[in-house]
Amino acid sequence: MAKKILKRSDLTKLVASVGKAGGAFVAPKAVANGLVEYVFIKKADEIEFDYIVPGKSFKEANFPQTEVVARFKNDPEGVTVEGVELNPPRVVIFGARPCDAKSSESLNSVFTWDFIDEFYTKREDAMVTITVACTTGDNACFCTSVGIKPDDTDGSDLLLRETEGGDFTVEAVTDKGKAFIKEEKAVFTEGKATPKERTIFEPRKLDVDLEKIGEYLKDTDHYEGDLWADMARKCIGCGSCTYACPTCHCFDITDEGGFSETERRKNWDSCQFDFFTLHASGHNPRDRQYKRWRNRFMCKFNIYPGKFKTKGCVGCGRCVRVCPVRLDITEVMEEISGA
């Protein structure tokens, strides 16, 4: 049977139809000189098709950079607190990449172990992930080295593959995806034959052994040693890697506002900041930058796979691309794999 087709020209209809039903549409868009980001779009002509991965992952859709979780009022009648009630509309993510799609599972595993963070889960439940398999990539991409393929279906509701003619073949992955196709049947058409699909990008394969890295990190003695200080001495302690990373989940809770009305916000935070772990007493468990960098590496290759049973690193390469000092996580991965 021929695959269903989504014509590029039909995206206008799709965006309009999702909007009409009260949903929102997120897609890659060129937002500044040389920068493509996932943003809410109103019209299909805003969609950018020429990108490797957008600057940040679409985790923002489920885990916004800043969001109000509660409001407080303090007036003569007394103090009141009011929690934010979230009723997110359907959000269609168009143009996700398989690495990003896979990362949803990772974030979910953190936000739902034992305590469930509904600010995350409610949004995720309302999300439809439409992934476009990678036909382009760069030297920073390394998904196949962490067990993801550039046309993986895992984590996506629909997987699209670009055709030579610029349209997309459609593979329904989940029930949510199947239901979406039914709802939007006007744009998911069926042809007689499947058009020729473009060649999938083959990222460079690193010489890494995730199991070996995992074993290495299990040995608490390896937390000491010069490796970390030597590899991460150049780290300048900005949070770029963590903010660009699809699986970084750290956040801060902060109150702001005036005297009588204030709000409590959940804001992205970064384990790379020196104040992140600073105690009130002045003691800081991670008082050196290499310790903070070590923590991020530990999080990706020990805590995520060990504790949450999900991928800490999806090989999107963002942290490599954004790093102002080109501190390349893959070099450390290879170093440890060869150790």
Binding site: V110, F115, I253, C271
Partner: peptide
């Protein structure tokens, strides 16, 4: 006693290793 913000295993700062 580590610095904590969420208290519920999400915010990622009280961890000692794993």
């Amino acid at each position: 006693e580590n610095k904590m913000k969420c208290g519920v295993g999400k915010c990622g700062r009280c961890n000692v290793g794993d």
